[in-house]
Write a protein that binds this DNA or RNA. Structure first.
Length: 364
DNA sequence: TAGGCCATCTGGTCCT
DNA sequence: AGGACCAGATGGCCTA
């Protein structure tokens, strides 16, 4: 690969300074979070700098290489608030927390909400501190942190399995169905086997026995570790579900109840294995989402109160990485065109602008 | 209310 | 054989 001489002027810039330039070059920069990491600035009272941001168009820059340039700021970063979420906790999360967050005091409103509104399954990403409801006794500790693929060397990234999988709102499988009859369906669809048969199967094939197999590779081993707790919790709740389903009918609203005749068989899968597979899939997706969050912190962003979509994160990151690569004297451009650093900065600025343009147009 | 985004479930496919 | 990965379907939340 030919190494172009980067512009000397920009070579002297740190990543943070580069980000500042990018944001400064952007029109309406006064309205933007000029910090390198939007999340960190958010905590510094940058909420009033919010600028509408959306996703649209194609990225201005395409990269064929990927390399973690990291960030200049290695301090732990609070996650950006979900742009679609208000600062008020939703009734959904609140209701679920009231059910599962044994260690979390629930406002009195939660009970009424849970009784009146349907239970939502969606998890709310806010911050690692206020969104992660760790239910397991072995709650997260820095020593147990699991770095995501994009995590920084010194950045403490909570184990996604703890942040997400054990979040009360993550899955219907974690819910107490006696309290939330609307969410019993996933398990209800599964054919219930005689308890004796279940016991027999668990003896011959349990997740713990699966773990005894030789690890295939570090990545899979990590995945298994994170999924283990989720699966265990899912199985515990699953065992409760069918028992509780009969009790649900005593509530005022029984319209959502289904008789056991609606249970179904999964193709070539036992009930337990389907639950385990669901838990693993959730863990896998949560890991990906955590990696997106990490990447989101590593790229400059407009708003302090709104977060980029996953697609926007990728687009901005591509442009930003190219710019950083040019500063480092490398050329990660798709066509090896060796763009100047100034052009790269302009491109990444344009990309960020593009991500916010559509929404501004809609506003007009 | 429509559309975008995202979490979850599910089944198929590939890999170990 | 079982897990990882993937994509489709579904439905909730949010904004315009």
């Amino acid at each position: 690969m030919a190494v172009a001489q980067p512009d000397k002027l920009y070579m002297q810039l740190s990543a943070a300074e580069l980000a500042a330039i990018i944001m400064k070059d952007s029109p309406n920069s006064n309205d933007r979070d000029a910090g390198f990491c939007s999340a960190s600035s958010e905590s510094e009272g940058g909420d009033d700098l919010a600028v509408e941001q959306t996703r649209s168009g194609s990225p201005n820059i395409e990269l064929k290489g990927t390399e973690d340039f990291g960030t200049a700021d290695s301090k732990p970063i609070a996650l950006i608030r979900n742009k679609r979420k208000s600062t008020e906790p939703s009734k959904v999360v609140g209701s679920m927390t009231s059910t599962f967050g044994q260690a979390n005091a629930c406002p009195s409103s939660c009970a009424s909400i849970a009784a009146t509104g349907p239970l939502k399954k969606r998890i709310r990403y806010t911050s690692s501190a206020d969104s992660a409801v760790v239910l397991t006794p072995t709650s997260y500790s820095p020593s147990r942190s699991v770095p995501t693929p994009l995590s920084l060397e010194h950045e403490i990234i909570p184990n996604p399995a703890h942040i997400f999988v054990r979040h009360p709102g993550v899955t219907t499988l974690h819910r107490t169905f006696a309290t939330h009859p609307e969410q019993k369906e996933p398990l209800e669809l599964v054919t219930k086997k005689p308890q004796q048969l279940i016991e027999t199967e668990k003896k011959s094939e349990t997740y713990s026995t699966m773990q005894n197999r030789k690890p295939q590779n570090p990545k899979k081993t990590l995945h298994k570790k994170m999924a283990k707790e989720a699966i265990a919790a899912s199985l515990i709740d699953a065992n409760l579900s069918d028992e509780d389903m009969c009790k649900v009918g005593s509530g005022s609203d029984t319209s959502t109840l289904r008789p056991h005749s609606h249970q179904r068989n999964y193709k070539n899968m036992t009930r337990e294995r389907r639950i385990e597979a669901n838990a693993r899939e959730r863990t896998r997706v949560h890991t990906i989402s955590a990696a997106y969050e990490t990447l989101r912190h590593a790229v400059p962003a407009y708003a302090s109160t709104q977060k980029l979509s996953k697609l926007s994160v990728l687009r901005v990151a591509c442009s930003y990485i190219l710019t950083l690569s040019r500063m480092a004297g490398q050329d990660y451009s798709a066509d090896q065109s060796e763009p100047s650093i100034a052009d790269c900065i302009e491109a990444v600025t344009s990309t960020i602008q593009t991500e916010g343009k559509v929404k501004r147009k809609k506003d007009e």
